[in-house]
Design a protein around this nucleic acid. Structure first.
Lengths: 249, 249
DNA sequence: CGCCAACTTGATGGCTGTCAAGTCAGGTGG
DNA sequence: CCACCTGACTTGACAGCCATCAAGTTGGCG
């Protein structure tokens, strides 16, 4: 199993691919959100490189020097922390339009691993250029700050999940969050294929894979969802919301 | 108990107090880190207002409109999330030189509560001005990004804690982290007074207050620490590090 | 067709939560 | 100054949720 291929991921010339941000179908989800056409033109030179990852490839590893942020163009990734003793904590799952690599800014080294859970296309955003442009383009600066802030808020939510919720609540909250993110990308919110294993999902939720499996089964018995391996149908979103103890207030 | 005083916190005129960032004793810990004297002078006008909080006062609440970041000048705060059903998750403890309020940037509303755990002095940093200045002062821009990134990394660590560690590991990691932050501020790393209750600490660590108490007692029996209510002495930091299952790798 | 990773399900155990009682420390009022 | 009161903390007994261990099933892929 080629767990750790050397960087064979192809580096693509974007000029040929005509994939400037201004013409990207994800621009309403990704960094360029809210930019005027004029400003959009200014950031078109930002992404000069794209990388293709095969399932299982690393985008970066903890300890790698930090140069760029990465925007998911297509595919699905996870970020994870490793402890010396082998324990692993998944810190997030990223899909199209979401940014990866913010962890590296602080120390100029990445602090986690990013791994593709399916074949993925990644836009490479050199961070120095991004900082330079965001000094010139106020909207871009503000949006970058918002993206970082939202990542902080997302992690607050995960802390709530891990610190205060029971297994059923955690999984229900996760499914609803995933459904909502899929819907924002034009996919069905009521049926989808999970891209991660039960073990990866459990790691994210602070549960063991058997517990994840059992809760899936329980939700299915109760008619909240239908489960066939990775294929999930949400049958009763309202009750699923009820299964999450309390919303934020 | 005046849980929710109207904003009686005094607003101080900084001109009178001569507390510009350039002459602040915390400038090596706070936002101005790494600025040249020249740049430092440029941000001296950033903090025009300070607020004094009494123990128990809120700095802001979830839902409040976001205008400013806050730097702790002295004192000790917590941030927390509330669920409708009353469950509470402490998301962080902040001490001198640390920033509060990054959660509000994304939605322009605060998403958590910030509460003083002891009488505190807070520098108010209007975020619009900070963004403006950071467009002009590259070092400031870079440092702001680093601060936000480090907050993301800190939260990754908490996720690891909550998702993968057992009660003893969580408490040991917390004590070591607290000791290290105190040391960075010139305080003793081997003895200190906790500013939070067992319940608040437990909430942060995903434990009940009784469990926190029991683990303290166990550590004391093993000679790792000495506990007298909130007064903690770290007797054997090496073994305490050993009690944290694995370091990051 | 066979192999293997991923998943499901059952039995059991342990860590931590829950409930309860008691101790301690600090602050207030007599 | 001391008694009292209250919130914070400690400690014990017990219970429950989830982890662990184990066995079997499913589905994808070579």
């Amino acid at each position: 199993m080629p767990e750790n291929k050397p960087q064979t991921s192809r580096v693509l010339d974007l000029g040929r691919l005509k994939t400037a941000c201004s013409s990207c179908s994800l621009r309403e989800l990704c960094l360029p959100v809210g930019l005027s056409n004029e400003d959009l033109a200014r950031i078109d030179g930002l992404v000069l490189v794209r990388r293709s990852l095969a399932r299982g490839d690393h985008l970066f590893r903890a300890g790698d020097s930090f140069q760029s942020l990465y925007a998911v163009r297509s595919g699905f990734l996870k970020t994870k922390l490793l402890l010396e003793d082998g324990r692993e904590q998944v810190t997030g799952f990223q899909m199209a339009g979401e940014l990866i690599g913010l962890d590296g800014i602080g120390t100029e080294r990445h602090t986690c691993d990013a791994v593709a859970l399916e074949d993925s296309e990644i836009c490479v955003i050199p961070f120095g250029r991004l900082e330079q442009l965001s000094r010139e383009v106020t909207q871009l600066q503000q949006h970058l700050h918002k993206v970082m802030s939202r990542e902080i808020v997302r992690e607050h939510g995960v802390m709530m999940l891990l610190g205060s919720m029971r297994a059923e609540e955690r999984l229900a909250a996760f499914l609803l969050n995933l459904a909502q993110r899929l819907a924002a990308r034009g996919y069905s919110a009521s049926e989808f294929n999970l891209r991660m294993t039960r073990e990866e999902l459990g790691s994210y939720l602070g549960l063991k894979l058997e517990t994840v499996s059992r809760v899936f089964s329980r939700f299915q018995e109760e008619g909240l969802i239908a489960v066939q391996q990775k294929y999930i149908q949400i049958k009763d979103p309202e009750s699923l919301r009820g299964a999450v103890g309390g919303e934020a207030c």
